Simulated scan of single mutants.
Amino acid sequence: MKICIIGYGKMGKMVEKIAKSKGHSISQLIDSPDKEVEDGSDIAIIFSTPRSAYSNIIKCFEKKIPVVCGTTGWLDDIDKIKKYCKLNKSTFLFSPNFSLGVNLFFKINNSISKIMKHHDEFNSKINEIHHTSKIDSPSGTAIKIKEDIDAILKKATPIKSKRIGSNKGTHEIIYESLSDTIRLSHTAKNRDSFAMGSILCAEWLISKNGYFEMDDFLNDFS
């Protein structure tokens, strides 16, 4: 694949490294919102700032380039992207977290939430920690966890966010009653799994059409 990387920070650099190790080429690197998307890429992988995410996606769509996006903090516009894909037959995959471990974490928690649905004595809460450079708070991963739990338990789950040092990402889900505390947690050790996940999704997406999420990719292999 010829990959256009949009957002050339720590994640963009990791995507470049792993993509090349898998035999893909980098057709364009975009590290500024003022830079135009060029023709000739097979797919774009976006890890840009939240502010520029929507415009970057549209620029790719206008060039008929499928998009894999891991940027969070812009999701007020996600319905516009879904509508654009439907009307213009564009191709897009979004995930707040491309780590296989985190996506297994989502599935494990959903199973626990379905059990907790029958135990009203337990309340749920979410703690998340990231590095001090992370702009959005709470994280997109924490928001997804909350949405999943709230949809099952039919009540609001609070999120507590912290920004500490160089933490790559820690998410903890707590189910607590007056008598017991149950904790489920995931800690990212490095960015490799995020980058690898985005590239695997790109390889899968390139032959597809429409709007997709990480579950669509995972379910194709289950």
Rank of each mutant, 00 (worst) to 15 (best):
A142T: 04
V102T: 10
I45K: 10
E176K: 03
I145P: 02
D216I: 01
I164F: 10
E128Q: 14
A151R: 00
C69M: 05
Y8F: 13
E16A: 03
Q28I: 00
I26W: 02
T170V: 06
I143N: 14
T91D: 09
M196G: 06
G169K: 10
I126H: 04
K155C: 01
K144V: 10
I43N: 01
L218G: 10
K208Y: 01
L178V: 06
S161I: 02
A53G: 03
M11K: 10
I199P: 09
K17W: 07
C4L: 06
Q28V: 01
T170N: 04
R183D: 05
I135Q: 10
I149Q: 07
S179F: 14
G40V: 09
K17R: 15
D215A: 14
V37T: 04
K2D: 14
C4W: 01
I115P: 06
N167R: 09
A53E: 05
N110Y: 08
V15C: 06
K208A: 02
I129N: 11
D148N: 15
N109K: 00
H118N: 14
I58R: 05
F98C: 04
K168H: 12
F92S: 07
K82R: 07
N110C: 12
I143T: 11
D150E: 15
N127A: 08
K155Y: 00
S124E: 04
I43V: 00
A195D: 01
I182G: 06
K154L: 00
S90F: 09
E213K: 12
R51I: 12
K86I: 13
N209Q: 15
K154E: 03
Y175V: 04
L218R: 15
G210D: 10
S113F: 03
S139G: 14
I152G: 08
A156G: 12
D34T: 09
S111H: 09
K168A: 11
S185A: 03
P66M: 03
K17D: 10
P66W: 00
I112F: 14
V37G: 02
G101W: 02
L100V: 14
F61C: 02
T141S: 14
V102H: 04
T72H: 07
I43H: 00
I30T: 06
E121Y: 09
G73D: 03
D215N: 15
D150G: 06
S55C: 10
P33M: 05
T181C: 13
S137R: 00
C60Q: 03
L100E: 13
I45E: 08
S32C: 10
L93G: 04
G23Y: 08
I135F: 13
I206Y: 01
